[in-house]
Structure formats: C-alpha cells, structure tokens
Simulated scan of single mutants.
Amino acid sequence: MIQFLMGLDDSYSQIKGQFLLNDPLPPLSKVYALIIQEERQRDVSSACPIVDYVALLSRANASQHTTTT
C-alpha cells in the first residue's frame, strides 16, 4: 500500500497523508477505491466550468435570437 501511494502524483499528497496517518493502515483495496473516487470527483469538478460555459452560451444565443426576431 505504501508503494502504491508513493507512486501517485504530487497532486494526491493530501490524501496520501491521510492514509498514512491511519493506524492500522487500511487495506490496499480500500485505498485504491478511495483514490478512484477522488479521481472521479476531480473529473466532475474540472468539467463543471465547461458545462457552465455551454449554458451561458445557450442563454446568450437564445436571448440574441429573441431580440433579433
């Protein structure tokens, strides 16, 4: 488990520290599942600005269409 955590990118330093502070250390399967969950949350968080931008464009196009017709 420690080898797995040390192989992770520095962006996981906070979560790595949390795992290493546990006594006893959690099983590798739990660590792996929580890392996957963290990655999914990061993917969703990084996608949100794109979704907001698309929504903004849609509203702008809709308001432009209604003012020009």
Rank of each mutant, 00 (worst) to 15 (best):
Q14A: 05
T69F: 06
Q18I: 06
Q64G: 15
P49M: 09
V44G: 02
I35V: 00
D10L: 04
Q41T: 11
T66M: 07
Q64Y: 14
E38K: 08
V44A: 13
T67K: 13
G17Q: 09
R42H: 01
V31F: 04
Y32Q: 15
L56G: 12
R42E: 01
A62W: 10
L20S: 05
H65W: 07
S11N: 07
F19E: 07
V31P: 00
S46F: 07
R42L: 04
V54D: 14
Y32W: 12
I2A: 06
D9K: 14
N61S: 02
T67G: 11
D43F: 07
A47W: 09
Q14M: 05
T68M: 10
M1R: 08
T66L: 05
A47K: 06
M1Y: 06
S63Q: 09
L57P: 00
Q37E: 12
V54Y: 14
L21P: 00
I2N: 08
S46R: 15
V31Q: 06
T68A: 14
L5D: 01
S45D: 15
S63N: 02
G7N: 08
G7H: 02
L34H: 07
P24W: 04
D9G: 05
D23G: 03
Y32H: 09
Q64A: 13
K16I: 08
I50M: 14
E38V: 06
T69Y: 08
R40W: 08
D23F: 02
L20M: 09
Y53A: 13
T69R: 12
A33T: 07
D43A: 08
P24D: 10
L8M: 01
Q3G: 09
D52E: 13
G17R: 08
Y12R: 01
D10G: 03
N61M: 06
R42Y: 04
L25E: 00
V54T: 15
S29H: 11
V44I: 10
Q18C: 09
F19C: 11
V31T: 12
F4T: 11
C48N: 10
L21N: 13
R40L: 13
S46C: 13
L8I: 07
L8D: 00
A33Y: 09
I2P: 03
M1G: 02
T66I: 15
R42A: 10
A55T: 11
D52N: 14
R42S: 03
D23I: 03
Q64H: 12
A55S: 12
K16E: 01
S29P: 09
D52C: 04
L21S: 10
S11F: 00
H65S: 13
I36F: 14
L8T: 01
